[in-house]
Amino acid sequence: MILCVGLATVDLVYRVDRIPGADEKAQATAFEVAAGGPAANAAVTAAALGAPVTLVTAIGSHPLGALIRSDLRNHGVRVIDAAVASGAPPPVSSIVVAGHERTIISRNAGELEFSVPPEGLPDAGLTLVDGHHPALAVAAARAAHRLVVDAGTWRPVFADILPYAEVVACSAAFRHPTGVVEAPHVVVTHGPAPVTWTSGGVTRSVPVPPVDAVETSGAGDAFHGALAYFLAGGATMEETLAEAIRVAGVRVRHPGARDWLDRL
């Protein structure tokens, strides 16, 4: 089983012909509602690939939370809600997409703190954390048999998490305060450019095949979900990175929050 720990949001996705300017109204050509967030999207990807997946996150009892639960349930992800007693709205993102451009307005987890549920965290062969909900992330990192860290951008909690990591997957924008990320495997994605992978003091470049990208939202999350899936299945790092790149390539070739999963 793969355990994902981190952010789940309500994503409201509007598709328009062009990003509107200030004080300008735009008519959406399409509209979607889906669960979002790095950990949630990674969980959906791993589940679509065939893994049993549990997501530990903070949703709460607000009616909007039902949208998150429904989408995750429909895509085979079991949810453990650390905020079940909270009536506050869950994190929400409004995403305006026009071709390769997008504008995102988010109200994420903020400063709210949620503790590990009374039943504790389930045992998992591999755990992925995204650094949101710090108390949950630290508890999951300490309990993990194998830990993958989605390090999109620096968060202070990473100082407590990274020492437990087997794989740290960074975006090109990630900056560690010391300038050095220490882990057995450090992976850095650069969009359509080659992925770099450092292990044992040696850095390799992994090519990214060119694709006709129509939507890049969630590509990194898909990469991380595939990374977790193939590592948990016993693949080597070389094999895992090749498959994660392939999965991210499938994601960017298809518009929509979830339709691309049918192409895996």
Rank of each mutant, 00 (worst) to 15 (best):
L3D: 00
L3H: 03
L7G: 00
L7D: 00
L7V: 01
T9C: 04
D11N: 11
L12S: 08
R15A: 07
V16R: 09
P20I: 06
A22C: 14
E24M: 14
Q27L: 15
T29Q: 14
A30N: 14
F31N: 06
F31H: 11
A35V: 00
A35I: 00
G36V: 03
P38H: 09
A39M: 07
V44E: 00
T45I: 05
L55A: 02
T57E: 01
I59N: 00
S61D: 11
H62A: 09
H62W: 09
L64H: 09
I68N: 00
L72C: 00
L72N: 00
I80N: 03
D81K: 00
D81M: 01
D81T: 02
G87A: 12
P90T: 03
V92D: 06
S94V: 12
S94H: 12
I95E: 00
V96Q: 05
A98E: 06
H100N: 15
R102N: 13
I104Q: 10
S106V: 06
S106A: 15
E111G: 12
E113F: 12
F114L: 07
V116Q: 06
P117E: 05
P117R: 04
P122S: 08
L126K: 02
D130N: 08
G131C: 07
H133C: 03
H133T: 01
H133P: 02
H133M: 03
V138P: 05
A139K: 04
A143Y: 04
A144W: 03
A144P: 04
H145D: 15
V149C: 05
D150Q: 09
G152Q: 08
R155H: 11
P156H: 10
V157N: 05
V157W: 04
D160P: 09
D160I: 08
I161F: 05
P163C: 09
P163V: 05
V167D: 02
A169T: 06
A169Y: 03
A169K: 05
F174R: 06
F174K: 08
R175V: 13
R175S: 13
H176P: 04
P177Q: 09
P177E: 09
G179E: 09
V181P: 05
E182V: 15
P184S: 11
T189A: 07
H190Q: 12
A193F: 14
P194Q: 12
G201N: 12
G201T: 08
S205Y: 13
D212F: 14
D212Q: 15
E215A: 10
G218N: 06
G220T: 10
A226D: 08
A226W: 03
L227K: 04
L227G: 03
A228D: 04
F230K: 09
F230E: 04
G233C: 13
E238Q: 14
E238A: 13
L241W: 05
L241C: 10
A242W: 04
A244E: 06
A248Q: 06
G256T: 07
W260D: 01
L261N: 03
R263L: 15
